[in-house]
Design a protein around this nucleic acid. Structure first.
Lengths: 340, 340
DNA sequence: ACTCTTTCCTAAAACGTTTTCTGAAACTTG
DNA sequence: CAAGTTTCAGAAAACGTTTTAGGAAAGAGT
């Protein structure tokens, strides 16, 4: 492949002149510039991204870390829509997307990985353990960073895009109360996730609004996974209880709960009503079709990408952006009216 | 960030010695090596990928081009599973994934984009027009390249992974014939795709096996999209016809066909049976639940990634690899027995 | 004709690695 | 102990760019 020196030779100008012509510097004669450009075209020249990146320390890449599939807080349809919208926005603005997947350097910090690869900014879609990772702080203190949906709640000064979890949880709980449920088990997700807490807050607000006492015994934190939710539900309903509804903080957790309930001989929604959160693709086809909260994943992804690019290109004035995207209840068939 | 010089200073050795220690050269004393490694760890050193790439001309990135969502040959669930499996395999082997999305350089060739970014190899998942792009040839003549599923059929010397389209199409057609259908409309996909031709071949084989004459009038090529299939079906069934079944080359095309049939007052599968191809996520939940051919997207993606990495690391001996992944019929509710 | 600008171009350093080549010191061997 | 061999470390070039600082030539103003 032709390099800048070849063009210099071909045109008779120096390397520096060619470089400047190529990069639109003003102290280059128009004719010179045109000649260089034409020659570059003819020689199918493309600048070497490594050499350039080495000196400018910039790139047109946006990095993405995302949680493993095994961490089921985010399963695949979820991620896919995020990625698609991020790709669309970033692509339009001139960025490529680098997905960090290399597992041969797992010991290294997020920050190192990003700097090493010279990404201009990072979007983080993390799950479970990853959120607890201490070295994550160094990352967002160094590089333009946007969290999607899932933030370690002890860190507050980060850019973030998330659903309006509190309002949506309020809406879902309110709906259950309309159906005469008053004893509602909240399967909350794991303690470290801000989303889990916000959804609990919405749940409590709704109860309070209807003068139903909040029973902390009904709020259970566990990993965002089908298995954990299954276990929790199974053990909870093995004892006698007056609970008539479950509000899970994810659809997969709702699946786990329903699975457990069925095994215990309960019918859903006949005996117990269940609401999920997310509206993953399979929710509508599930049996029973799952009543759940739909998160607008496309909008969330778009928004995250826009914020990130804005930070990158306006050289970060230090302000922190937080965007909350509305999420609403989608009523299907997994909730029933409680006979009073 | 710490660089190799900092480690040299900290340990008292020269840059070259540090580099060699880090890279496992044999002419380094064990103690020296251990000291360097330990220091590197402590200083959170990570080699600068640009500097290294500049000299080695290698990188640990795999590039991916994939078709736009607007080209519905591949819609989102499809791509998502490919990506996931590619990510898993590449990640385990020490590669990151660069998704080319930057739309500000559309004028450049695939080859230029890849070389400029220094990717070690490329996976192509292309649709419609992209496949016809002339400059694509320069790419696979220059860089390790694997096509997934969709190859411009005029090029033969390319690495490729695809479903066993011919056998699967045979199986699907055979099934329709078992149900006493003999006049089967084949909505084939677009001419330029090898997959379209292979599926037609399987269709013809099945007819021939059962001594049913092949009627070329029943083989219609059109873009892999719901709209085109809808239009084609609508116009086809507006005239009188003895066709009692449709075999579409994608699920979205099957949807288009069913939509048209319903509007024309036909019931599916009552009057007309329809089979799709792909088994996208929504196929099972569609009404009627779609009988279709399931492509093993995870396996296809894995296989493509493995082939690519193999080529990259074994310095391409020039042999061409083609892998065919089995695909089988999933029987649901969109086909019925034809009353004879 | 002299100075002051402006215009256009170049030399050279720098970015952080890898790798080849050279050589000092320490061992072997007879 | 001389000569040969092995072990280990370092110097320096190279990769392909960008960018700073400088300066020659041409034009402008008096």
């Amino acid at each position: 492949m032709a390099n800048i020196r070849d063009i210099a030779k071909a045109t008779g100008f120096s390397v520096s002149t060619v470089s400047k012509a190529l990069n639109g510097y003003s102290d280059i004669n128009l004719k010179t510039k045109q000649l260089v450009l034409k020659t570059a075209q003819e020689m199918d020249y493309t600048p070497n991204v490594m050499a350039r990146g080495l000196i400018t320390k910039k790139s047109n890449m946006i990095g993405i870390f995302f949680g493993d599939q095994t961490n089921s807080g985010f399963d695949h349809p979820f991620f896919s829509e995020f990625l698609r919208s991020i790709k669309d926005v970033c692509g339009a603005e001139g960025y490529d997307i680098l997905i960090f997947s290399n597992r041969k350097r797992e010991s290294k910090s997020y920050k190192s990985i990003c700097i090493e690869n010279g990404v201009a900014g990072v979007i983080l879609i993390l799950t479970g353990d990853q959120r607890a990772d201490q070295n994550i702080r160094a990352l967002h203190e160094t590089l333009p960073t946007v969290y999607i949906d899932s933030v370690p709640h002890q860190y507050f000064n980060v850019n973030m895009v998330e659903s309006d979890n509190e309002s949506a949880a309020f809406e879902a709980t309110d709906y259950l109360i309309q159906l005469n449920h008053t004893r509602i088990l909240k399967i909350a997700g794991d303690q470290i996730a801000k989303a889990a807490h916000d959804r609990v807050a919405g749940y409590k607000n709704a109860l309070t609004k209807h003068n139903i006492p909040v029973d902390e015994q009904l709020i259970k934190y566990c990993e965002f996974s089908q298995e954990q939710s299954y276990k929790l539900t199974k053990s909870f309903f093995s004892k006698k209880t007056d609970v008539t509804a479950i509000f899970a903080s994810s659809d997969t957790m709702a699946y786990g709960a329903i699975e457990a309930l069925k095994e215990l001989g309960y019918s859903v929604p006949g005996d117990i009503s269940v609401i999920g959160f997310d509206d993953i693709d399979s929710a509508a086809g599930y049996s029973p079709a799952l009543t759940t909260v739909r998160q607008q994943r496309l909008k969330i992804g778009q928004s995250a990408a826009k914020i990130l690019i804005n930070i990158i290109e306006n050289n970060n004035d230090g302000s922190i952006q937080r965007v909350t995207v509305p999420a609403h209840l989608v009523i299907r068939e997994s909730c029933g009216n409680r006979s009073v």
